[in-house]
Design a binder for these strands. Structure first.
Length: 490
RNA sequence: CGGGGUGUAGCUCAGUUUGGCUAGAGCGCUUGGUUCGGGAUCAAGAGGUCGUAGGUUCAAAUCCUAUCACCCCGACCA
């Protein structure tokens, strides 16, 4: 390894997971810390392209389930936040507040939205009169600000991008269906597009959204075994309906408060993507979210005619790949192929083709998949079809590996001493999900958190291989209806 | 908010203890040549009000005072 390679080194994951993460994000050209504001980040073009892929697919799914996009104000009167007691209590510590505008001290301060339940409640109250106005199904793509004491790129930044769905329904039953429907949309998206297996579950009281009746979530395991909350869906009951007087007349002519939901995923997903698939060579992107599917690297020599033929063959291959629906980069910049290989690997480009004079003679080309270590030769004819199949295979393979890793790192524990030993003995790079019984009290949860830093990530929903079985709490030995997922988390 | 640290070239940093010539290195960048099948090489070159403000001094990146910002570790969180 020469000086250049040394300077561009990515810290091996086994050495330091946090350093590895930072290096992969930087070298993958996803984002960088905007050091002008604490905790702010610049999402760079390649990172934003991934976000656009995420947005595009989710937006399609939201619309397919009947939602419409809208946009609400960034600034919210402070009094709005205070209308829902639990909500304001939960968010107060992380609010950024505008006190001066137009050169004058404001009569009433504005908070920069940390989320939009309150401002949307205000408008829903104006838009909804009758049961015929329901359900009202709205989504907003927006930025929000939550002042963070300890930021990390994508995972926790002061300002982040997200979508927030907000719906109003005539019955609690219908609202609950919506909450689980959107949770399933998230789970399916995470597994099918991000190739990131998730566990759908319910949050405990201490982890639920401030102002919600119930919070559901999808939780994923990162490569260091820690949990990442990748999306949430809330049953808001009538809490905000009452706070903002969102009432409707039902079919019997009686006035009632609407039943609301809200649900969101954010740019945090990109952090999850990185920590699920990437390796010591940099970013690995699942094909369905890769802005570039394939890169073609030409091998040039001295002979100008020969180079012209290589260039032509490369362009032709690019056209063939594009005809199969792939996004292709023909990397014919000056310079040796080696640095191009490394750069494209770090960008997470799933497929790479190498093409030189030798290949043209033999009607073949060099092929390498980002998730495999060996390169191989394949016939030039039919390369585009081959590529398309390779992408589909890689998408599945990434999911399969991530799922296998999660299963290998999920353990059942019945005895609290065993739990303590496990949490103490694990190194930072090899944490685990622990499936264990809990007596259902916040006190027990708090005790475990204080002693081990592990929390209940969720109470898993049925149908995911974590079926309910009664038992006794690992800490207090009191009765427990089912096991829950314990883990350290981001 | 508590503890620790850092601000010098685009990046990573040396120089500060003990003040002293024109402020340095590696990488990156620009131009030209030879190269090109896994991080090439040679030559020439561009790039700095040393975080900011004030003070001490013949002289300040270096000493003093104030101030700002960011990073790391903890408590809070999508």
């Amino acid at each position: 390894m020469n000086k250049k390679a040394d300077a561009l080194r990515i810290t091996p994951r086994s050495e330091s997971h946090p350093d590895w993460y930072q290096d992969v994000v930087r070298e993958g050209q996803l984002a960088e810390a905007a050091e002008i504001v604490k905790g702010a980040m610049v999402i760079k073009p390649h990172g934003y392209a991934v976000w656009e892929k995420i947005q595009g697919e989710l937006d399609r799914r939201f619309k397919a389930t009947g939602h419409k996009n809208a946009y609400f104000p960034l600034l919210i009167p402070e009094s709005f936040l205070k209308k829902e007691a639990e909500h304001v209590e939960g968010f107060s510590p992380e609010l950024a507040v505008v006190t001066v505008a137009g050169g004058q001290e404001l009569e009433e301060k504005y908070v920069i939205r940390p989320t939009s339940e309150t401002v949307i409640g205000h408008f829903f109250a104006q838009w909804i009169q009758s049961w015929r106005d329901l359900p009202l199904l709205i989504n907003q793509w927006a930025n929000v600000v939550r002042w963070e004491l300890r930021p990390r790129l994508f995972l926790r930044t002061t300002e982040f991008l997200w979508q927030e769905g907000h719906t109003a329904h005539a019955s609690h039953e219908e609202a609950k269906e919506e909450v689980l429907r959107m949770l399933d949309v998230y789970a399916d998206f995470a597994e099918d597009f991000m190739a990131m297996p998730v566990i759908r579950g319910e949050k405990t009281a201490s982890e639920k959204f401030a102002g919600a009746v119930t919070t559901f979530c999808i939780e994923a395991m990162m490569q260091d075994g820690k949990a990442l909350q990748a999306g949430t869906s809330h049953d808001l009951g009538q809490n905000f309906g009452k706070a903002f007087n969102v009432r409707f007349q039902n079919e019997q002519g009686e006035l009632d408060y609407v039943w609301q939901t809200s649900w969101g995923v954010s740019t945090r997903l990109i952090g999850g993507l990185v920590m699920t698939h990437s390796d010591d060579n940099g970013l690995v992107l699942p094909p369905k979210l890769a802005p570039i599917h394939a890169v073609i690297v030409p091998f040039f020599r001295k002979n100008a005619d020969e180079n012209a033929r290589v260039r032509e063959a490369g362009a032709e291959l690019a056209r063939a790949l594009e005809a199969e629906g792939l996004t292709v980069k023909f990397d014919d910049r000056d310079g040796a192929p080696g640095p191009k290989f490394f750069e494209n690997e770090r960008l997470g480009v799933p497929l790479r083709f190498g093409l030189g004079p030798r290949d043209l003679v033999e009607r073949q080309l060099e092929f390498k998949r980002r998730d495999q270590s060996e390169k191989r030769s394949i016939p030039l004819d039919g390369a585009a079809k081959f590529a398309k199949e390779a992408l589909a295979d890689m998408q599945q393979e990434l999911f399969r590996r991530a799922l296998a890793r999660r299963e290998a790192n999920t353990v059942r524990v019945d005895d609290y001493d065993d739990f303590l030993d496990l949490m103490k003995s694990e190194r930072d790079s090899e944490s685990k999900f622990v499936f264990a019984h809990w007596d259902g009290t916040p006190e027990t949860e708090a005790k475990v958190k204080a002693e081990t830093k592990a929390t209940i990530r969720c109470i898993p929903l049925p149908g995911q291989g974590f079926e309910a079985e009664p038992g006794t709490c690992m800490v207090t030995k009191k009765p427990s209806a089912q096991r829950v997922i314990w883990a350290k988390s981001y």
